Every structure is written in structure tokens, then in C-alpha cells.
Amino acid sequence: MSNTVAPSKPDDRIPPTPLAVEAGNPIGEFIQETIALTRRLFIQLQRRPSTLIAGIVQPLMWLILFGALFQNVPAGLFGESQNYAQFLGAGVIVFTAFAGALNAGLPVMFDREFGFLNRLLVAPLASRFSIVVASAIFIVTLSFVQTVVIIAAGVFAGAGLPGIGGLAAICLILFLLVIGVTGLSLGLAFALPGHIELLAVIFVTNLPLLFASTALAPLSFMPQWLQVVASLNPLSYAIEPIRYLYLHGDWSLGSVVMEAPFGSITFAGALLVLLGFASVALLSIQPLLRRRFA
């Protein structure tokens, strides 16, 4: 369930932005640089739309095929879910966002190999961290586009639709997860020698994290050791709150969303875990980025 970006020679010309910035204004210059670099990524996507199309079609295939495979299971087998499509929907949403964020380092890696990143690093940028922020904005936007399509498809598959507050909570959950995974992927892009090694890490990471989470089956289906592993997997802390939003319109921050082997996890607890994961991921890559940017 990964959307691998095919290597293509990047356009060395960064599109100009209409934002006028006064000389000596570092914040304005940083915003201008970030906008320009983000526009460059979207121009590359416009020239290579198959990346976005594949990122939408693949999770839809998972939702349709897996939903059909388990549509005749006895009622109540997957907890409170009315059907397997409703149970699976949260897992597909989270894992699609995770797979896209895990691939965030590939454009940066290709820029490294084509030499464009070196040109950026020697350019008089206000802050080289605009490269990282632009990649994060690009990945978060793509993740939200994919999520909208999956949620809409889930309605037709019988998964239902959370309320306005539930949809806002889903956006917050995905934002925290995507920011953390994007940070780790960008760190790998600067730490690993080439895109072959980065692709190997992506392929080795994808499926184990999928099966060691609650995306495809509830914790009660798993052996004890796998329950412990799934309870330590950050993906489970994004999947279970979203699944709870689909099933309960009267959710609150104190609602228990997961019964882990070591205790009950509330909605607020899951958000704190995701916030901690994103914070640790971003803080851990900063020393590496500073060394590379220097």
C-alpha cells in the first residue's frame, strides 16, 4: 500500500511567487521561500498526475476488495461495526496517509541525486528549513485529498459518515501522524546514501506496521504478544480514534477508544501519544538537518 514516486529530473527553476517581501524581513522571506518550494512540488505533481491517481485508486481497491471479502462475516465479529467496510475504513484512511508520508523523502532524495538540492543549499535562503516545511505542506495536502476521497467512497460502501466535529478530529489525527512520519522520512532522505536504500526502508516498513496495527483486525483477534506490539504502534493510536468517530456521534475526549493490554486508552490519550510521536520525530531529525544544511 505504498505510493512510490517515480524519479524524474527536477525543474531547476523555482516558480516565482506573487508575495512581495521587504528586504531584511526574515519571516517574510521564509514564507516566500516556502511558498515557492511548495509550488514547485505541486508543479511536479501536475506534470506527473499518475502519482496522485495511484495514491487514490490503491486505497479504494483495498476498501472495496477487503470489504467484499468479509461482507458475510457474522454481526458483531468486529466489535460495534455494522459491517467490515465500516471497520476497515479507519485503517485504510490512516494507512494511506502513513504510506504517503513515508514517501515524503523521495523527492528530496531525487533532488540530492540530480544535484538540485546542492543548488538550494548554496542559495542565499533565509532558512534552509523552508525545504522541509514545503515538503510537509505538500504531503499533508495530498493526504487530506486522499482522505476526502476515501471517506466519500466509504459512505457508498456502508461505512457511514462522522459529523462535522468528527471530521475535524480526523483531520487533526491525520495531521499529527503525517507530520511525524514525514519528519522521519525526510531525516532518512538526508541520512541514507541513495534512493535505493530509502525505498528498501519504505518497503520493509510498510507491511509490518500494517499487520502490527488494528487496521485489519481488532486487538481481541490477536495473540498476546501481537496485542502488545499493536498497542505500541503509533498507527493504532490514529486508527482507533477514527474508528470510534465512525461508530459514536456522542464522542468526547474522555471516551475510551482502545483497550490495550496495559490499560484503557481514551481519545485524549491517543491524541497525546500522536502529539508525542510527532514531537519526538521532529526533534530527533533537527540535529541531522542542521549538519546537512551546514
Rank of each mutant, 00 (worst) to 15 (best):
R47N: 15
I31E: 02
L37G: 00
Q46R: 09
T51L: 13
T34H: 06
Q32G: 15
L37C: 00
I56M: 13
Q58G: 00
F30N: 04
I53W: 00
I31W: 04
T38K: 07
L41Y: 03
T51G: 08
G55N: 10
R47C: 12
F30M: 07
L45K: 09
S50M: 07
G55D: 01
A54E: 12
P49W: 11
F30W: 09
P49N: 10
V57H: 03
I31S: 00
Q58P: 01
R40C: 09
R47P: 15
R40P: 01
R48A: 13
R48C: 04
P59L: 15
R40G: 06
I56K: 01
Q46V: 03
L60M: 11
L52D: 12
Q58Y: 10
Q32E: 11
Q46P: 00
F30H: 07
L60K: 10
A36P: 01
S50Q: 09
R48G: 06
Q46C: 00
P49Y: 10
I35S: 04
L52A: 15
L60C: 13
F30Y: 12
I43Q: 13
Q32Y: 02
V57Y: 03
I53P: 01
E33I: 01
A54G: 15
V57M: 10
L60E: 12
Q58F: 12
L41V: 03
P59W: 11
R47T: 13
I56S: 04
A36N: 03
A54K: 10
Q32H: 10
L41G: 04
P49D: 08
A54T: 14
P59D: 14
T38I: 09
R47H: 14
L52K: 13
F42M: 01
A54C: 13
L52V: 14
P59I: 14
I35H: 02
L41K: 05
R39S: 05
I31Q: 04
G55S: 13
R39I: 07
Q58A: 04
Q44P: 00
L37F: 04
T38A: 14
F42D: 04
R48L: 07
Q58C: 01
V57W: 04
R47Q: 12
G55H: 02
Q46K: 11
L60R: 07
Q46G: 02
T51S: 11
E33R: 05
L60I: 14
A36T: 03
F42P: 09
F30D: 02
F30C: 02
T34V: 10
R40A: 15
L41E: 09
A36G: 06
V57G: 03
I53E: 00
L37K: 01
I31P: 00
L37Q: 05
L41H: 10
R40E: 11
Q32S: 15
